[in-house]
Design a protein around this nucleic acid. Structure first.
Lengths: 162, 162
DNA sequence: CCTTGACTCTGTAGCCACTCAAGGGTTTCT
DNA sequence: AGAAACCCTTGAGTGGCTACAGAGTCAAGG
């Protein structure tokens, strides 16, 4: 099949498929006479695997590791467990951060019950005062401006580390 | 003061300060004879405001809007409320998504109690089967692989709660 | 045979919010 | 005077795509 059909079968943008190929996640396919990429069932399986992992918000690097495990059946799957546990930890951590964020934002929101002029807006006042810095966690889970776990989304800001 | 002091006072990377200037968030400062940027108290206030907003995971565009409100005191602060409410909504939504993510990941993790060889690993099996695609929500909150939202993490700007 | 239109190709640039590095100039301390 | 600390500009890199531009390929219809 050609790239369009693979795209339809897996719900993956054509550009994304080519991106995965460039990035080494998808094996380089055969080409037709007219230089079109030709895929088979194995590619469908492989791409579906990638998309499922992405829908679980794994990085492409993590997916690469999992693919390696799949291709080395003699290896112990305890490593797979470890990778998954670490990923679950990141998700949990990010949730905690977002909870703290929500708490602060709601506190800020309380400061402005009704509409007044911005000169006396309690929210702007609140933002002009200090906010307690929460811990310097090092999650790899993303912040507040991003699409769902849905892999068809842009990536957000990188955190700052000092 | 020079950029290094502003950096220390606000806990902001020097490069980040210059980036904000390029991006129009910080007003262009005066220059010394040796072409060094010279900042005053107003810059400290302004940058602190930005960093506090960033610590609440607002985008630079949102911050620009808030700055506009601050500079137009006659405007109604109901707009500020709306912006904040929307942002809170994004955070809440992202948390829900992460909860669903956690559920799925833990379900997957259950499939592998003890270490076996990867050929029979229940996790890899699970990843090779379908996972329900969650909704096509349009949050701007980020996913699972990100640093903490807090830009003041290391230096810790002075501060009480909001 | 020719055209139309759908599909595909490569290559490059853009997104966000920074971060880093190269290669230089300026100031300050000893 | 020289070293160290600071500052400058420019450009590139991050992740995971997405979106173009400009060209080529292919099947169906007139």
């Amino acid at each position: 099949m050609k790239i369009g059909e693979l795209s339809r079968l897996t719900g993956t943008n054509v550009e994304t498929i080519r991106y995965y190929e460039r990035d080494g996640l998808l094996p380089i396919p055969a080409r037709s006479e007219g230089n079109y990429r030709i895929y088979g069932d194995a590619h469908v399986q492989r791409l579906s695997f990638i998309r499922r992992c992405r829908s679980l918000d794994m990085t492409l690097d993590e997916i690469r590791v999992l693919q390696h495990f799949k291709e080395s059946p003699q290896e112990n799957c305890a490593d797979v467990n470890r990778l998954l546990d670490r990923h679950i930890g990141h998700v949990a951590q990010r949730m905690q951060e977002l909870q703290e964020l929500e708490r602060q934002l709601k506190g800020l929101r309380e400061r402005c019950g009704e509409a007044r002029d911005a000169a006396h807006c309690g929210i702007l006042d609140g933002l002009s005062q200090a906010i307690v810095p929460s811990g310097k966690t090092a999650s790899h889970v993303q912040g507040a401006h991003r699409h769902a776990a849905n892999p068809n989304s842009a990536k957000g800001i990188q955190g700052n580390q000092v």
